[in-house]
């Protein structure tokens, strides 16, 4: 329990060991991927390393080697295009809906429980349902309609939950002060509410990018022609068994890290600017 004059209790050390074990359990597989992606040209999917090289990255970019690594660049483009649309839409729709929940309104439970349903229903069910609906209506599935729609069913519930967290801690006094000073609703949102909830808004944006980029079960039946990254990687997984897989892993992880660290840096800068403002 809490530290006493006699120092830390034994339970601290037991639990600290468990914490370290969990971190090893989480990191060890990833580290293997990053290290093995620099495997020598004759090396395989396991240790030992037969020397260090960037051979497998070259194979990946050249698209040669005939290991079913056909279309990674195009799949990546498709995934990024989808993620860009989904993250912008999710952010706007979730922030707007979050604002609605600051008042009581009839039907609020309906939308809330739809969001929960959308989050907890088996993904394969949602993906199948959308594809079937389009099929019966005679519409072609297409990344721009059913693809984005299917991904929104996954990113929006989390967006709404983040808005609940952010607005739950929102102090209405600032807004009342602005109203007293004669601000209209547009000014209140732009100048008071948005700056305060901005870290949460960026959180929604980033979580939508990652969930869109990773989502497969809902997306795969609904994107229409061409693979997205998860589909492409799954295909390669079942086809090839060379360190090219690890090269893809290292690169996609790097892309994710860049996106997330960029967003966190942005949030930190904005939080600092707000803290430094003398009138805040």
């Amino acid at each position: 329990m809490m530290r006493t004059a006699r120092g830390r209790p034994p339970s601290f050390y037991v639990l600290a060991t468990l914490m370290i074990a969990l971190l090893i359990f989480l990191y060890a597989p990833m580290l293997c991927v990053y290290i093995l992606s620099f495997q020598g040209p004759d090396g395989g999917m396991s240790f030992p390393m037969t020397g260090w090289s960037t051979h497998w990255f070259e194979v990946l970019f050249a698209g040669t080697g005939g290991q079913g690594i056909g279309d990674v660049p195009n799949s990546f483009k498709r995934s990024i295009r989808l993620a860009a649309c989904v993250s912008v839409l999710s952010t706007i729709i979730a922030v707007s809906a979050g604002m609605a929940y600051r008042r009581k309104f009839p039907g609020s439970n309906f939308v809330f429980y739809s969001a929960i349903a959308s989050m907890v229903l088996p993904s394969i069910f949602i993906g199948f349902g959308i594809a079937l609906t389009f099929n019966l209506l005679g519409w072609q599935v297409n990344w721009f309609t059913s693809g984005i729609g299917a991904q929104l069913t996954w990113s929006l519930p989390f967006g709404l939950l983040i808005m609940f967290i952010v607005l739950g801690r929102f102090n209405p006094a600032y807004e009342e002060a602005a109203t007293d000073l004669g601000a209209n609703s547009g000014q209140r949102f732009r100048m008071i509410i948005l700056p305060i909830i901005l870290p949460g808004v960026i959180g929604i944006f980033v979580s939508s990018i990652t969930s869109s980029y990773e989502e497969n079960a809902r997306t795969q039946l609904n994107v229409g022609l061409g693979n997205t990254m998860p589909m492409e990687i799954t295909g390669i997984l079942t086809g090839a068994s060379t360190p090219v897989l690890f090269a893809i892993g290292t690169l996609t992880s790097l892309a994710m890290f860049a996106i997330i660290l960029g967003a966190v840096a942005l949030m930190t800068v904005m939080a600092r600017r707000r803290a430094n403002r003398p009138d805040a």
Partner: peptide, 22 residues
């Protein structure tokens, strides 16, 4: 509130509830 929540309600209705029924 209805206007603000409408886009989200639309997505869930067309992409979750109607498919569920179908």
């Amino acid at each position: 509130s209805w206007l603000q929540v409408a886009p989200m309600a639309l997505v869930f209705t067309t992409m979750v509830l109607i498919p569920l029924g179908i």
